[in-house]
């Protein structure tokens, strides 16, 4: 029989001192601006919560054409910002580690894994998610093609596949089935819709519309 203890004591220690530092420095800055009741609270059990509020960073970005000015914690990923704070749940979380492509969005027109990017890094950028791809009530040609070719089953990987598919054509990597397969391999589909996804992309590419 042995004792087992998680070995992350050190990192926790670092984490705590980081918090303390932020707590103190932000409290110093805040001192001049803050009524005395808040300062009193700061010395009690409230200080963690107060520190939390001061840790927020302001962020302006555009999502699907709408400008947002937000105050968010720096640890929030772009994916969680979209899903949990902006209620844009079309962008999916399949792994949270940059391994599945379910969270693919466009940032300034290029495909990006939203789970691998902190929201605060998107200052001033334009983010497009599946909800904003078509821009209106009609479907984007890629969405139409996915419906027609049955490029989906459960639908969970689908938004990421479609965002990647559009980017794949824009990048000029959709010149053959083999090339599409290679450049779409960052988007996993456990249901196995791959042949239909490739067919959908081939068709949109052939139509030659500007995407």
């Amino acid at each position: 029989m042995t004792d087992h203890q998680p070995d992350d004591n050190n990192s926790e220690g670092l984490d705590e001192s980081r918090r303390d530092f932020l707590k103190h420095s932000s409290l110093l800055t805040a001192m001049a601006l803050t009524p005395s009741t808040v300062l009193k609270a700061a010395s009690s059990q409230w200080d963690e919560r107060l520190a939390g509020a001061f840790e927020k960073i302001s962020l302006s970005l555009e999502v699907n054409g709408t400008k947002h000015s937000l105050a968010i914690e720096p640890r929030v990923t772009l994916l969680d910002l979209l899903r949990e704070q902006l209620a844009l749940t079309g962008t999916k979380k399949g792994c949270d580690y940059g391994q599945c492509g379910a969270c693919t969005v466009h940032v300034d027109g290029r495909r990006v894994l939203a789970c691998m990017s902190l929201a605060v890094m998107q200052e001033g950028r334009k983010v497009t998610t599946i909800e904003g791809l078509a821009g209106g009530d009609t479907l984007h040609p890629m969405q139409e093609a996915f419906v027609k070719h049955d490029g989906l089953q459960c639908g969970y990987c689908t938004p990421g596949q479609i965002m990647s598919a559009v980017a794949c054509i824009r990048e000029g990597h959709a010149n053959s089935a083999e090339e599409i397969q290679e450049y779409m391999s960052g988007n996993l589909c456990r249901c196995g819709a791959y042949p239909n996804i490739v067919a959908a992309i081939m068709e949109v590419k052939k139509e030659g519309k500007k995407l």
Binding site: R83, T89, G90, E131, A134, V147, D150
Partner: peptide, 21 residues
Amino acid sequence: MDRVDARLKVSGAARYAAEYT
């Protein structure tokens, strides 16, 4: 026939278990 729920799925409107706001 095309799937009856395909539109919801390709437009990101289909809600899964963790997506009810």
